[in-house]
Structures are given as C-alpha cells and as structure tokens.
Simulated assay, not measured.
Amino acid sequence: MRNPLNAAALNAALEDVHRAGIPGLFAEVRDGEQVWRGAAGVADVATGRPVTADLRHRVGSITKTFTAAAVLQQVEGGEIGLDTPIGRYLPRLVPGERGEAITVRMLINHTSGLAEYLPYAYPSLKAFPALADTGPQSLDDNRFTRFHPTELIDLGVGAPAVGAPGGTPGVYSNTNYLLLGELLHQVTGTTAERYITRNIIERAGLRDTELPTEPYLHGPHSRMYEAWFGMIDPPRDYSVYDMSWVGPAASLISTVTDLNRFFTMLLAGEIVSPSSLAQMQRTVPVVSREGRTIDYGLGLHPIEAPGQGTFWGHGGTAWGAGALAMTRADGRRQMAVAVNLQRWNRLDASGRPQPHPLDAALAALYRVAMYG
C-alpha cells in the first residue's frame, strides 16, 4: 500500500488539467509526514495573477460532511436521535405523515425522498436536470439575494417527492441538509453556522475555514468562473455571491490544507466518536446530482483506490468553484484539490453534458494523488 509522493508526477498532472482548460487549480497531497502542495494557472484571467496552494476557496458540498458531523455530535450528547422522525423536532417544516416517516438518518444519507429546492429558487433552472432548456440568468439575478432557509425548505418539501422515505436508491438533495441546519438550530439554541464554527471548525484548529454570512470572501482567494455548459462564454466570475441559497448544505469557505486537516481528524475519531464515525461510513446507494448512482454514508462518500484501500471524503461545487477532498481510511494518504471553473462540458441535443478533456485530466490527477 505504501506509495511515496512523486512530486514531478503530481506537478505534471496539475499542469495537464490547466492545459485542458481550467484557468487555475491548486492542491495538497499528504502521505504520512510527506506533504506536497502545488498550483497551476491563474487566479484572475484578466490580470494573470497566479494561483497559489494557500488560497481560500468555496468548497460547495464538502460542507455537508461538517454539518453531518455536527449532527452526530448532538446524537452523542443525546439531544438528537439518529432514527427519530424529523417531524418530532420540526413539525411545521415537515408536517404530518412525512414528518413521522422521515428520520434524521434519512436526511443525512439522502434517502428522505425530499426533492431538491434549487430549481424552484432559481427560476431559470426550473428545467433542471433538462439542462438544454435552462439559462444562467438566475445566477445574476440572485447574486446578492438573501434567502431564508425555511423558504427554501418549503420549496423542497412542497415539491413532488422523488422517492419513499427510506427507499433506495436515495436521491441527493440539498433540502435534506437545510433541514439538518434547522434541526441544529432547534436543539442547540444557536444557528447551525455558529454551532459548526465553534464545535467543528474552531475545535479542529481550521484557521482559514468559515461559513460566510456575507457575499464576499476575505483573505487571498481566486476568482471563480462559471461556464454553465457553454451558455456563459467566456465564463464569468461569481466569486462574490451570497451563499444563503445553500447555507449548511454547501456554503463553506476553506483551503486545501484545512480540508486535509479536517478529514484527518474526522477519520481518527477526533471530531466525532469512533462509533459515530462507523455510522457515517454505513453507505446506501444514492443517485447523485449528475445522475450517477454512488455509495453515500452520513455526509461521507467512499472511493476505492486499486491497491490502496478505501478513501473517504466529499466533493463539492458552487458557482464557478469546485473541490474534492479524500482521505484513506487509515488517515495516512490524502488529497484536496480545488479548481476555479465549473460546468465546462457542452451539452448535446438532449441536454446531456458531453465528455471534455478536463474530465480525463482531472481523473488522472486524482489517480496520481491517491495511488500514483
């Protein structure tokens, strides 16, 4: 299983991704005491400012692992029951029979059957996932919109169900994690953002990680370019954006170093107890936003690496920003990668994203990072 870091191969793989079309990307790979950090390309296409490996970045749904861990902490303290119906805690938000049928666990592992609210909050995405019929106008319209989580939850809960509670495969839905944020608020008496900041981010010593309360990023960061499947050409910068549209589901700002530190501590049983971690690693089949069926636990997703065992972590996207953080089960080998372009694939006549050289280049980078 031992596969020491190959800095030359990692640098080459990073440059290949940049040449394939990402304006800028940066990464940190660790193997025991060995640490490699690298960056390729630019943080600003207008000025040519280079990316560096220490930049802060919007990391999207990697936020879900933080939120899931916060809920598990409250389960350990006896304030939340993992298999208790959500309607016992939030009867107004998930009323009636659904509130009694959907458990906290089903929210965390996306088997609640609750629909995604995003197409309803962003009107030009209403055809999602029939992407050929959508446009980017809502991205601009909502750049500074301050959403309240309960209005978004109401959209998701009010939409037609995508499955029966507890049924598999589940369907990935941000509605689940906004509800978990409201659950944390209900049982802790403080907002999910404040609870996660105090009990996850600060406790883990993550100095460049935050859940934002305003549209701006502070500290060194890249611009973040959204292509929306070629409909925004050239891609536009959406680094300034009010992330209340995803809140505790996907609003986190972090660095590749902080992400690796967080997942190291999580898999070592230092964020939640070993028994809670075991619960997080119990997976079920879930249909991802891209339409693929993946294994998904409680805020964790596994990847099997040939000859290297299982890696655990999460990926995430925001408008213009993407990230993936994966750590091997023994905590020794890990990678965190961030890119400043999203939705680079063009669409075919049926609205399906077409293969792009970036897909293969990123897959090659991940292979080199995880197992050489």
Rank of each mutant, 00 (worst) to 15 (best):
L114M: 10
Y122H: 11
P23I: 05
R143L: 12
G41I: 06
T67D: 08
D140K: 14
L125H: 05
Y89D: 08
S61D: 06
P149A: 08
L131R: 02
S138N: 10
T134I: 02
E116K: 02
G78R: 14
T67N: 11
A20W: 01
Q73G: 07
D83T: 04
Y89E: 11
T67Q: 04
G77Q: 14
I22G: 00
I102Y: 04
S112F: 04
D44I: 04
P91C: 12
D83A: 03
N109P: 08
R49S: 05
R143E: 10
Q137D: 13
E100H: 09
V59P: 05
S124Y: 00
R30L: 14
E76M: 07
K64I: 03
Y122A: 10
N142T: 09
E76N: 05
A46R: 15
I102M: 10
I153D: 00
D141H: 14
G60D: 01
Y117L: 02
E97D: 13
G113Q: 03
A40T: 02
V35M: 05
L25D: 07
I80T: 06
R143C: 10
R58F: 07
V29L: 14
I102E: 06
A121C: 01
V35P: 01
D140C: 09
Q34T: 03
Y89M: 14
S124Q: 01
Y120G: 13
G41S: 10
L93I: 08
G113T: 01
R105F: 03
A27P: 09
E79W: 14
A53L: 07
G41W: 06
Q137E: 15
S112I: 02
A69T: 06
V51M: 09
H57Q: 10
A130E: 13
P119M: 02
V59D: 02
E33V: 13
Q74I: 12
D154I: 08
G96Y: 01
I80A: 02
F128C: 05
A53R: 07
T150A: 09
L118D: 01
T47L: 15
N109H: 06
A27F: 06
V94Q: 12
R37F: 14
D141P: 09
K64E: 10
L152I: 04
E97M: 12
L93C: 11
H148S: 08
Y122K: 08
T145M: 08
P95R: 05
A46M: 15
L107D: 02
R30Q: 14
E97Q: 15
P95W: 01
Y122I: 11
G24W: 01
I108F: 09
